[in-house]
């Protein structure tokens, strides 16, 4: 990633996910014109101290972006209410087959070496 210095920070290179900020609201999945995002979640009951009744929250189980389908329009980044998706200048994620372009939480959240 030696050329990253020359690429603007908000370049449409790669869409990164911050899993902790994602509420599994599905807005990005539903707005995506390319249908390239999938999201799986399950509901969990939580009770805050002092709350009158427990609340139901969605917990993110799986999130994928198929960059073989993505057209890099950025609508998902725009609609995300909690900025869990953001553009990053990363570009070196070519794959030798189609399945390699389907990026899951591990890759999207940059728990590897990217960014």
């Amino acid at each position: 990633m030696s050329h990253n210095d020359e690429i603007p920070a908000a370049a449409h290179g790669y869409i990164a996910l911050t899993p902790a900020a994602c509420t599994s609201c599905m807005l990005c999945v539903r707005e995506c014109p390319s249908w390239c995002i999938t999201l799986e979640s399950h509901a969990v009951q939580t009770s805050e101290p002092g709350a009158r009744r427990p609340t139901t929250v969605s917990v993110l189980d799986a999130f994928t972006i198929d960059f073989g389908l993505c057209m890099f329009c950025g609508i998902c980044v725009e609609v995300c209410p909690f900025d869990a998706l953001e553009w990053t200048p990363r570009f070196d994620y070519a794959a030798s087959d189609r399945s390699g372009l389907v990026q899951a939480i591990d890759q999207l959240s940059g728990s590897g070496d990217q960014r």
Partner: peptide, 27 residues
Amino acid sequence: DTPWPGAATAGGDDAAGRRARRQLPPG
């Protein structure tokens, strides 16, 4: 031919013990 990924419900289909209103892909 492609199932719309947005048809899934936030929290899964069992969220709060009921299935949310079925959504349709825009356009």
